[in-house]
Design a protein around this nucleic acid. Sequence first.
DNA 1: TTCGTTGGTGTACAGATGTACAGGTCTGGT
DNA 2: ACCAGACCTGTACATCTGTACACCAACGAA
Lengths: 198, 198
Amino acid sequence: MTTPDATPAGPTPRSNGARAAGQRDPDRRQRIARAAIEVVAEVGVEKLTHRKVAAAAGVPLGSTTYYFKTLDDLLASALRQAADDDVEHLRSWAAGLDAGGDLAEALAELVLHYLGPARAKTIVEHQLYIAALHRPALQHVSQEWDTALAELFAGYTDAATGRALSVLFCGWQLQGIVREQLPERADVEASFRRLLDR
Amino acid sequence: MTTPDATPAGPTPRSNGARAAGQRDPDRRQRIARAAIEVVAEVGVEKLTHRKVAAAAGVPLGSTTYYFKTLDDLLASALRQAADDDVEHLRSWAAGLDAGGDLAEALAELVLHYLGPARAKTIVEHQLYIAALHRPALQHVSQEWDTALAELFAGYTDAATGRALSVLFCGWQLQGIVREQLPERADVEASFRRLLDR
DNA sequence: TTCGTTGGTGTACAGATGTACAGGTCTGGT
DNA sequence: ACCAGACCTGTACATCTGTACACCAACGAA
């Protein structure tokens, strides 16, 4: 992770089968943004550097500064990317939701998914979310993120309940990521049920 | 904030009325830790440096490295200090709570306090909390923090409800610090009430 | 008084970092 | 075939960072 020589784009000017200078690579910007997310997951926001991202993305250092003028730009794109990916994931979860099913049960399942299989993703998202606190330009991305969550949940109930569900949902995530032990599914489910029952 | 010359301990070896070398100052360690909290509040964890803390605390650079071998040590102490201060604040809040009063109302009030007058404190605490994610030695501090919260709330209800209340409480805080607009007191109160009603 | 010990400071240094930029390579239009 | 411009890369540099450490001041014991 310290030396960029593991990347396919080696120091050889050309002749290498890897990508040479001048070649178009339209996805590269997004690849770099996703690599930044990866780096944040591994080392935390406070140790995010151009060089680490370049190494993780398999691109030369100059490439990261070419696509992102400043490190904050990179962080901003990473946050946006993470938010977009997550909202999309949530929508597909909602699409697969049984119409007549138990919402409290499904929400508990979702929480445990975010704290189990998708734990790394959850951690990154919270890191980026908090990083936005000192970057006014990013705050609206974070806001839209949990607004989308609230609206999604509101679709099954009403606006106020949707909001409350999203708050509780974020709370379970936040408290979950600092503990090794997952919360009891029954406890999570019961808490959602209480918000849903009138 | 760049030059440490604003501190009472100037470069003059002695003669100055300010503290000279060799003088005892038992509170200095704690003062530095609190200064670190201040710096995090201003610039975020990712830009915490020995020098900034030294400037904020009004001590020479050598002093911060004398009391805290490494920067992570400093961050750890800051987190512990913040947690201790907060738990103490919560306990005094609980002590002043009317025994027969409405808990949902009081909790909503508390949330708005953390998002209003004590907003800066809330932001720092979340920053430090998240920073602990990549520092295993610190995770138990974060855990104890919200465990204390849950136990405090459980004192008025039961263990499961206390936990749920603390989760919802953290959720409101988290979503609140990225928005300028405070949540509606009625909404917050209603959400707590739903967890409390059986 | 004398002197060892503890507490505190200023400075130096090696390493890492963000960023600019000159130059190289390819593409698409004419 | 030619060229203008877009795309991309490697490197250099000023700056900032954590940390070590030699030095000094005060205190307390003898």
